[in-house]
Structure formats: structure tokens, C-alpha cells
Computed example of a mutant assay.
Amino acid sequence: MTHYDVHGVSIPALGFGTWQLRGDGARDGVEHALSLGYRHIDTAQVYKNEAEVGAGLEASDVARGDVFLTTKVWGTNVAPSKLTASVDESLRKLGTDYVDLLLLHWPNDEIELEAQLVALEGVREAGKARLIGVSNYPAGMLRDALELVPDLATDQVEHHVFLEQDRLYDIVRERGMVLTAYSPLAQGAVLEDETIREIADARGVGPAQIALAWILGQDRAVAIPKASSAAHRESNLRAADLALEDDERAALDALTKNRRLVDPDFAPDWSA
């Protein structure tokens, strides 16, 4: 599996996402993912499963130091007066004294960006996060953040074969970051696309593997698909070793790339 060095820390290019996984599904999913060979686990405060993710880590035979663990600070907790305490609560639930990556989950324009980032840096300086970054920041906002904190590690955004992120790729490659793709399977839409299915059938693999391989074949790209079933976790992991041919990639590149699935009322102006 590809790993990227980001500011001296190794990030596995394929991770296990836990959005919408709750209770035993989250705990058992994390434990199973680690047993398969995943070494990158992604959660967030708002997923309400940090305790279960932590239980899965604890139940696993994999040492904590061998797992790249991400969580995210929800928008209501990004104020400097709240951020550190909220991170401490996340660490308590996760059963660890640090995360490998800590993200601001969504932009919050009600609180000065510099104040948010200074508080985030403080958590890192206290040893509670090895890397820090942002999520759901459009290109212009990411550049603003990098002016304040030049060594952010990633921008985690929706990205799949139906939604391009070229402007963000330009930035992360220029700055030695990675782009982390959530919803990399377009919430299941890749399973029904005729072009993807034709390529998958010809290769004797599943459409999800083709869609993941399209992302993972891009420079500085990380993907964190969620999988609620053991079979899907196994299938997704095999995509890490699947290389697309030039004609296959060209066919996928040609698909329309304007289908955004995650766009809540509080989302930023994506064109900014």
C-alpha cells in the first residue's frame, strides 16, 4: 500500500472511514479492518462513535503506534475557549493520549480563522496530535489557512469519480500535503455507473475497487471509504494494489465531474 510522508509522518493512502457506523458496528468494524491490514482509521466528534472506535482499537492485536488515527473537531467546538477541552474528551473516548491527525471538520466563519488555527496548533504543541489539518475547505480558504499555518497536513473533502478537486490537488501537491477523499464511492453511485461497471467486469473486480483505484492512482491522494460489511472492507482494501491502465483512467476521467452529494446549509462557497 502507498504511504505518503507529510511533515515527517507516514500516512497510509487507504483508510477505513467510520461515518454512520455506530455501536457494535463501529467497534467490530474497526477491529476487523485492522485484522485485514488497514492501518488508517478515520472518525469525528459528530459521528458519535469515538468510544466505539477506541474500543475497536483496544480489542485489536495491532499496536496503537502502528495505527494512523484521525478525528475531527465539530464546528461548535472550534472556539479557542472550547477546542482543547473538546479534544481532550475525544481522546478520552478514543482511549488514547494522542491522535495522528486532528482536523477542523467544517469552516466556521463566526470565529476568526486565525484563532481557530492557533488553538489547533496548541493541541499539536501539547503532543495531543501529530498532524493538524482542515476538512471541507475550498481552495481559496485553504490558501488562507496555509498563510496562517504553513504545515497543515491535509484537506479532507468529498471526492470521487463524479466530483473533481483539481484546484485543491494543485495546492496539496505544491505544499507537500495530501488530499483526503471522503465518500470516495459517491455513496454507492459508482456501483451503478455503466462505464465503471464495464471496466470492473473486464478486470474481474468490483466497481468499488475501480472507483477507489481511480483516486488512489492520483498523486498525493488518500481515500477513506466506509464499509459496514466485512466483504466490502475486504474488497476495498484490495483496491490499494489495483493499478488502472491508461485507457481505463482516461474513460473515468471523461465522466462528468460535477455531482456533489454533501452540501449542507452551513457549507462554504465551494467555488471560493
Rank of each mutant, 00 (worst) to 15 (best):
G8V: 12
V9F: 01
I11F: 07
G15C: 11
G17M: 00
G17S: 02
W19F: 15
Q20C: 00
G25T: 11
A26N: 07
H32C: 04
L34T: 09
G37F: 09
Y38R: 09
H40A: 03
I41S: 10
T43H: 00
T43G: 09
A44K: 06
A44V: 07
V46T: 12
A51F: 03
A51K: 15
E52V: 05
A55F: 11
G56S: 11
S60N: 11
D61I: 02
V62P: 07
V62H: 04
A63C: 01
D66G: 00
F68W: 13
T70Y: 03
T71A: 05
T71E: 07
G75F: 14
V78N: 06
P80A: 08
S81M: 02
K82S: 13
A85G: 08
E89Q: 15
S90L: 11
L91K: 13
L91G: 11
R92N: 13
K93V: 00
G95K: 01
G95M: 00
G95C: 03
D97Q: 09
V99Q: 12
V99L: 06
L102K: 09
L103H: 05
L103D: 06
L104Y: 06
W106E: 02
P107Q: 04
N108E: 13
E110H: 15
I111P: 08
E112W: 01
Q116H: 10
Q116C: 14
L117A: 12
L120Q: 09
E121S: 15
R124W: 02
R124G: 03
E125K: 14
A126T: 01
A129F: 08
A129T: 04
R130Y: 04
G133L: 13
N136K: 06
N136P: 04
N136S: 07
Y137S: 07
D144L: 05
D144I: 01
A145H: 02
A145V: 03
L146W: 01
L146M: 13
L146C: 02
P150F: 05
L152R: 08
H159E: 03
H159N: 15
F162E: 10
F162T: 09
F162K: 08
D166Y: 13
R167C: 04
L168F: 02
Y169G: 05
V172Y: 06
R173P: 01
E174Y: 02
E174I: 03
R175T: 11
R175S: 06
G176A: 12
T180H: 12
A181H: 01
A181L: 03
L185W: 09
A186V: 06
A186I: 08
A186K: 06
L191M: 11
E192I: 00
I196P: 02
R197M: 03
R203G: 00
P207V: 00
Q209I: 03
Q209V: 01
Q209A: 10
A211Q: 10
A211F: 07
W214G: 00
W214R: 05
I215M: 14
G217F: 01
Q218A: 13
Q218Y: 05
D219G: 00
I224Y: 06
P225I: 13
P225M: 12
A227M: 12
S228H: 12
A230Q: 14
A231I: 07
A231T: 14
S235H: 02
R238W: 00
A240E: 15
A243N: 15
D246A: 15
D247T: 15
D247N: 14
E248A: 13
D253W: 10
L255I: 10
T256V: 13
N258H: 13
R259V: 14
R259I: 12
R260M: 04
R260D: 00
V262E: 07
P264N: 06
D265N: 06
D269S: 04
A272D: 14
